[in-house]
Design a protein around this nucleic acid. Structure first.
Lengths: 144, 144
DNA sequence: GCCTATACATAGGTATCCGATGTAATGTCG
DNA sequence: CGACATTACATCGGATACCTATGTATAGGC
């Protein structure tokens, strides 16, 4: 009855969720905002709809998220020169700095904790990161 | 300037967050409710305050979460026989069934995805799960 | 019997999401 | 070229999930 692959897959989600929840409290920046600027950092300037698809949220949600990011000065929103309906959202220097700040906070916490866990070495960490990264399709849409 | 431990630690959080976000959409159950019944499943009956500490949320938040769980029939809330101020929250059979259902959905998705990733074997998954699990202190309170 | 600490509940506010719906620009097709 | 569907967003109304501040009742020390 016990299927190791299945059981471990379930555990992976549970522990990943708890890690994320613990780390989120370390910085006061809203999670939704961080996700958006993180996506912009990786993909470059994108429209509202594309951002929503990549972030797996509805388009109105992304409209609101981008509006609040503009208020914070973390992104710029300009009309698309090639399509008067569309917008182009660009990461600003302040947004890039904020992203770096939060990532550093997260990394500090995880790295410090790992340093006192002798049973896990750098290879284990690299393995975990590669597995989590590969689990999510970048563009296509599977069940995940 | 590049520190592999630090960089990988940051990436771990980013990819874990994306995995969790992707998986959350697979079931329609509220995430807060699932976390609470998951904690009850592991720890057994707990009071409101203890639940809040374990789940890293404020006590009023947990009061509300438990109230909605009682409405759904997933937990029972009874007065603590040894302390008239306190309550004891207990996982119900329906709650246990819901927990199993969502865990199965999550595990199915992750396992299916891993099955088509030849570069990751069961050992890699076990390594990742162990690392994520050990990252979080069970009771004490570090920076994580 | 006080007085403080503890276990919750309530009130009020913010952030984050959703679906439904409206608007304006784009592309298509006869 | 004009009707029409499609696309890219914005707005609205509402739900959920958090928070802080504050109130209430019981417990326990002296």
């Amino acid at each position: 009855m016990s299927d190791p692959l299945h059981d471990l897959s379930g555990d992976l989600v549970v522990y990943a969720a708890r890690l994320v929840r613990a780390v989120r409290r370390l910085s006061d920046a809203p999670g939704a905002a961080l996700r958006v600027i993180s996506v912009l950092d990786e993909h470059g300037p994108l429209g509202i709809g594309e951002l929503a698809r990549v972030d797996r949220c509805a388009q109105p949600t992304m409209s609101g998220a981008v509006a609040s990011l503009v208020e914070r000065g973390w992104v710029e929103k300009n009309p698309d020169p090639e399509d008067a309906r569309a917008s182009v959202v660009t990461l600003s220097p302040d947004g890039r700095a904020e992203l770096a700040r939060v990532r550093r906070i997260n990394a500090d916490a995880v790295a410090a904790r790992l340093a006192v866990l002798p049973q896990h070495d750098l290879d284990d960490l690299a393995t975990a990161v590669a597995l989590l990264r590969d689990l999510l399709p970048t563009t296509s849409e599977g069940t995940l």
